[in-house]
Amino acid sequence: MEIPNSSSSANKANGAVGGVVDRQVVYVWDLAIRLTHWINVFAILILSLTGYFIYSPFMEGRGEATNQYLMGTIRFVHFATAFVFAVNVLFRIYWSFAGTKYARWHQFVPTSRSRLRGLGRMLRYYSFLRREPPPQVGHNPLAGLAYTAIHILFVIQIFTGFALYSLAYRTGFWPSTFGWVNLLMGTPLVRLVHDIVMWLIIAFTIHHVYSGILLEIEERSGLLGSIVTGYKSLTPNHIYESDTANLPKKKP
């Protein structure tokens, strides 16, 4: 891992009393992570708004139907964005096997002993049983697990979405690839799942933004900015943890 020399601006507000913590600027999120994150943000925003409109249109086309294409346009935007979202999610899953250290699957599925221990620490922190959030360079283990769950929701959303999309086709790729979802659940239930998962993703987003702000305030590590720039400003505690995070054996 490349650790450039700390800049003086990164040293402020470290929260430590009785000594100056030497913060170091660390490149954590590679370009692919940041791009997929922001594509997800905008795609989910557009998909949720258009999707809710398709379920319950809150505007109405006025006048003769000949001159209106309100629902048609909104469905087009929904489908076009859905393709972008699906490709984005697919790429992110691929990148969790091919990407840089903090993009990889072991950040999302805690298997090592230290990641598993980190789960409990983070839970204790969230439930006020622990003063400090456990130091992490990348995702904390609990957040990683939450992102695994959110990606499962994404995949459910993609499958139910394309299953509904396939209804307009008699034969061909869409029905043969996704038609089984409709046969398995019955189409109205597919719609219900597609709707409820949207609400779950919105609920996740609330917590996601909140915990980002909370940890930024606690750690002052530039967490919020890091998803734009890729850099965090970290204490040696964090960096030490990151080096051992995925090693099952203890260092002397």
């Binding site: 430590a16 000594g19 913590v21 003063r131 400090e132 040696p236 505690n237």
Partner: peptide, 13 residues
């Protein structure tokens, strides 16, 4: 103190 542990500058963590 907010941090439990104080780390001196340039100290090996």
């Amino acid at each position: 103190p907010k941090a439990k542990k104080t780390i001196e500058p340039n100290q090996t963590p």
